[in-house]
C-alpha cells in the first residue's frame, strides 16, 4: 500500500484511490462533493503566458487615471493608489492599508510569484525557493480582491452619476483587462500539477 496511489479529500478526510481524470473532466469526492482535481490543458504554458500578460497590464491599470469627475468646476481623477492615499490622509490608516494590500500589493505579488514559478517550470529550471514561492502563492490566493474592487467601482459609479458627469480613462480598461487575466490565471493554474513538477525537478537535480 503505497501512499501515492491514494489521496484524501481535504474537506471530509475520505481516503480515496487517487483519481486521474483526463483533461476536461473533473474528479469530485464521492462523499462530500469537493472538487478534487480538474486538470487543465497546457497548465504551465498558459499560466506562464497569462502571468506575463498580467504583469504587463498591471502597470497601466495602476498608473493611468481610471475615472474622472468634475464637481463644481473642480476636476478630479482617480487611480487605485490615490484612493489609498486619500484614506491615509483622513487618518483611516488601517482601512488604507487593507485597501492597499488587497487591491495593489497582493495582486502584484501573486502575478510575480506565478510568473516566477511557471517560468522555472516551463524552462525546467530547479530553484531552491520554488517550494517557498508555492506556499506564498497558495496563501495569497484568497486575499487578491480585484474582482470585488471592480464591483465596487460599478456601485461607486452609480452613486456618483447622481452628483456629476463621469468620464472613464484608459486605466479603467487596463484594469478590466487585468481582472480578466487574473481570473483566467487562477482557473488555469493547476496546483497539484505544479507541486508534482516541482517535486520531479527537485528529484532529477539531486546529486
Amino acid at each position: 500500500m503505497h501512499s501515492t496511489h491514494y489521496d484524501a479529500c481535504p474537506e471530509c478526510d475520505l481516503l480515496l484511490r487517487a483519481a486521474q481524470p483526463n483533461i476536461g473532466e473533473k474528479a469530485h469526492c464521492p462523499r462530500c462533493g469537493f472538487l478534487l482535481s480538474r486538470p487543465r490543458k497546457q497548465s504551465i504554458e498558459r499560466t506562464f503566458a497569462l502571468s506575463i500578460a498580467g504583469f504587463i497590464s498591471f502597470f497601466p491599470a495602476n498608473l493611468l487615471p481610471m475615472m474622472g469627475i468634475t464637481l463644481l468646476g473642480n476636476a478630479n481623477t482617480g487611480i487605485l493608489m490615490s484612493g489609498v492615499i486619500a484614506l491615509f490622509n483622513e487618518g483611516m490608516i488601517a482601512v488604507a492599508i487593507v485597501v492597499f494590500l488587497a487591491s495593489i500589493l497582493f495582486p502584484l505579488l501573486h502575478i510575480c510569484l506565478s510568473l516566477l514559478i511557471s517560468g522555472h517550470l516551463y524552462f525546467n529550471r530547479p530553484h531552491r525557493h520554488l517550494i517557498k514561492w508555492m506556499h506564498c502563492m497558495h496563501h495569497l490566493d484568497e486575499w487578491v480582491m480585484l474582482e470585488v474592487y471592480m464591483l465596487s467601482i460599478i456601485v461607486a459609479c452609480v452613486k456618483l452619476m447622481a452628483l456629476a458627469p463621469l468620464e472613464f480613462g484608459w486605466g479603467l480598461y487596463a484594469f478590466i483587462a487585468l481582472i480578466i487575466i487574473t481570473t483566467l490565471l487562477s482557473s488555469n493554474l493547476d496546483e497539484a500539477l505544479f507541486w508534482q513538477r516541482i517535486d520531479q525537478l527537485g528529484k532529477e537535480n539531486q546529486p
Binding site: M67, N76, S82, A86, Y149, A156, L160
Partner: peptide, 10 residues
C-alpha cells in the same frame, strides 16, 4: 473599496 473610491473622487 467603494469608500476609498468615493473619498478620493468627491
Amino acid at each position: 473599496f467603494m469608500i476609498s473610491i468615493l473619498v478620493n473622487l468627491v
